[in-house]
């Protein structure tokens, strides 16, 4: 798979990849199971519905989700925060550091299960979301962005 991350940029959301792949497989399993319950398996109708569903699932699990998470990265230097990512719609978000007003840390049950949290970087009229960051990296990033001490998380 082609490496979509430019040199010098840190990855984000790579832990989410496993979560989304498992979720896709679970949804696929549920739909397939429901279809099997209502229709006789391996009949023509069943095959016409199951085949494209399987192709879509394989595309998501083997290509799209891994490529999407590999493309998501950030770079923080003295001047600005740059976040980029996306496959079909590739976005580069830039925010000057002096425009940043405050940073929020959001922890959901995923923090305790996967050790990830989300940083919400707020400026006037705009915000950048850095999701699924591992705890240590989120802590370090938070300290650099808001000049707080390490270990805040």
């Amino acid at each position: 798979m082609k490496n979509r991350r430019p040199v010098g940029m840190e990855p984000i959301a790579h832990r989410a990849k496993l979560f989304w792949i498992l979720l896709t497989l679970a949804i696929y399993g549920f739909l397939l199971g429901s279809m099997t319950y209502f229709l006789t398996p391996f009949t023509r109708v069943w095959c016409y519905i199951a085949a494209p569903m399987t192709v879509i699932m394989l595309y998501l699990v083997l290509y799209y989700l891994p490529a999407l998470h590999q493309s998501m990265c950030y770079l923080l230097d003295d001047r600005q925060l740059l976040v980029q990512g996306g496959i079909f719609s590739h976005k580069k978000q830039v925010m000057n550091r002096e425009q940043i007003l405050y940073v929020s840390v959001i922890k959901t049950p995923a923090y305790y299960l996967l050790g990830t949290c989300t940083l919400l970087v707020q400026a006037a009229g705009a915000r950048i979301v850095l999701g699924w960051l591992p705890r240590r990296r989120a802590d370090a990033l938070l300290c650099r962005l808001s000049e707080r001490e390490e270990g805040t998380l």
Binding site: L101, Y102, V105
Partner: peptide, 15 residues
Amino acid sequence: TGIFRREDRFLPYAQ
């Protein structure tokens, strides 16, 4: 704040 979605914010007085 928050139970399942905990949000931790630091608001500097200067901002």
